[in-house]
Design a protein around this nucleic acid. Structure first.
Lengths: 340, 340
DNA sequence: TTATTTCAGTTAAACGTTTAACTGAAAATA
DNA sequence: TATTTTCAGTTAAACGTTTAACTGAAATAA
């Protein structure tokens, strides 16, 4: 049996209230008593029992981490790294993280993850695009929510977002700087704000460079998979055979494009240069390694939990829907040939 | 404020004890009363408060899921899928899963994950190879443990393991059936039981086929990474330039081998055939897609949690260290050429 | 000096649930 | 009929912690 607060109190010859106060760093306790209590705590290897704490304090000590099953199982460990960051920061704040996946086909009538139904969480982090029906169900619980890499089309929520616009600009400028003029943009899921912003960045950079590379945007609204990248590349080259530079909206898309190119006898980067977005390991390991815009994944998880902690602290008041934009960075590898 | 058991009792006009008994399906309650109570529960959308339950029942409702940080962040979502299976099965049993990563450099003096220190779990699943020092620290807590894809070199623990031996046999036989005689085995981390067993399977299949392909086993004890695969492939071809069939001990290794081959002008599978192990998505997406031994990852997670539940149930008595061996399966793709 | 304030704790109620022990009515048994 | 057993619940204690309200001694103020 684990020691309880009573055992500590007895050992330190104080009341259990004193032990509790020491545990919460209350200034009412003298240094000497505090020392004695802490000594007993250590000697007995005492840790407060969460359930008992939760019962009285009405805090659970849990934060939820929600992600669609599809995202969680993606080949690229993108959101996995985000989770790791969240878990790290939660631990720093004495919280546990409960991870739950939901289907991207979530309907209003579907049951919410158990820890939500049971109200066994103090706040929640939602990562990636999730169904609106899910968010609406969740809102009834009136719990703090932080979104990562996605903002729902309604309401105004605290969120941690990627600087997609700047990423799009950086990516496009790099291609321009390497001597390209006709630059194609390839991307699925165009209704996703992140992809839309990358496209905006692409357009902005072209404008700034007075580059008039029209009609080379090939998109649809299907998932950003390798298969879709392949399909979109085919579409692109069916329309324009002369393209030599492509900005692919994310990593799997870039890989699909590459597969299409090699299948059709084109060499990368000798015949076609490719710029990608996200920077997951696969980008580095493929041949040739992809030049890409890197997104700080672990940091996003950390930021999200920190934001959640702040929202909890100022609960109610000072309740600004704060948005944090994390920076991106250009990582140069071998998928782009300088033709200057 | 969420409704409590009191609210339900009042609504159904019974005592709180009756509500509790209904919740636990006690046969002491008449069907009529039970119906009434369940109706109130539903109407009020009542869920028992975990902390209160935990306080009296001394169960936390959590199970821990431990994995090294290195494994969790691997490019291949191998253990991620295992986790998903565990989470799914835990939910079925009304448990939460607390995921915690530890460093593979864990030392005796390092702190354990918080939920362990706080005893906030009813059992634990350990996935992949973890440091012995960690296991030894954990044992002091005398909690049920189930290992996945690893058994520590000491003690006898319940575990869910891959049928590596059969996998090794299947893989090697497939190469033999495709006309190969001189078959190389490449693998790192040779002290890991799983890899050792795959090697044993390889040897066994060769023996059975009266194939005498000696001196073609190239191993070391470094991690099973792409880099190491590359290195080992170099070592192999430095010694024997004529090898045309390779069995790589896992997926990254196979990819490293492939990279070495293409870097050295060899075509796959025309010049060299490659067999792999694990079957993660990457195996399918690489060019050419890898023929491989598939491991049922999600099922391993499910089995592990089921085993943990059983151990808890028969707590103490009937305490057999049960081992579950999950089957593997051959998945034929395009990395092996039939030369018969 | 006495009265007031500060200090350093202690006391006791409360949180929501489970469950052993109890109860009173109805049914079964003698 | 009187007694015992079964049924269908109820009562009340317990779990480990937090915290508002209290206390008694020492320090300060009047």
């Amino acid at each position: 049996m684990s020691p309880t607060i009573k055992d500590v109190a007895k050992a330190a010859n104080v009341s259990i209230a004193t032990v509790s106060l020491v545990l919460h760093d209350n200034e009412r306790i003298s240094p000497e008593t505090k020392r004695r209590v802490l000594k007993s705590i250590k000697e007995l290897n005492y840790y407060p029992f969460r359930s008992a704490q939760g019962l009285v304090s009405r805090k659970t000590g849990n934060i939820g981490f929600i992600i669609t099953e599809e995202h969680f199982l993606r080949t690229e460990p993108f959101y996995t790294r985000v989770f790791l960051g969240a878990e790290f920061e939660a631990r720093e704040n004495d919280y546990y993280v409960l991870l739950a996946t939901i289907k991207s086909s979530f309907k209003k009538s579907d049951p919410l993850p158990r820890f939500i139904l049971e109200r066994n969480f103090d706040g929640i982090v939602i990562t990636g695009k999730v169904p609106e029906a899910f968010i609406k169900s969740l809102l009834k619980y009136k719990m703090p929510i932080v979104f990562i890499d996605y903002v729902p089309p309604f309401g105004d929520f605290p969120s941690v977002l990627i600087d997609n616009l700047r990423g799009g600009v950086l990516a496009t400028e790099h291609l321009i700087n390497n001597g390209y003029k006709d630059i194609a943009f390839i991307g699925g899921e165009i209704s996703h704000p992140s992809i839309m912003e990358r496209l905006q960045g692409y357009k902005l950079a072209l404008e700034r460079a007075n580059n008039n590379s029209n009609g080379l945007i090939v998109t649809n609204d299907e998932y950003l998979t390798r298969q879709n990248g392949y399909k979109l590349a085919k579409e692109l080259f069916d329309r324009r055979k002369d393209i030599t530079a492509i900005f692919a909206a994310n990593n799997p898309t870039a890989m699909g494009v590459m597969k299409y190119l090699t299948d059709n006898g084109k060499k990368i980067p000798d015949d076609v240069s490719i710029m990608s977005f996200d920077d997951v390991e696969a980008a580095m390991l493929i041949n040739p390694p992809l030049t890409t815009i890197r997104v700080p994944k672990v940091e996003m998880g950390i930021e999200a939990v920190q934001l959640l902690m702040k929202i909890q602290k100022y609960n109610g008041k000072n309740n600004i829907a704060k948005k944090i934009i994390v920076p991106v960075e250009l990582v140069i590898r071998e998928s782009i040939k300088n033709i200057n």
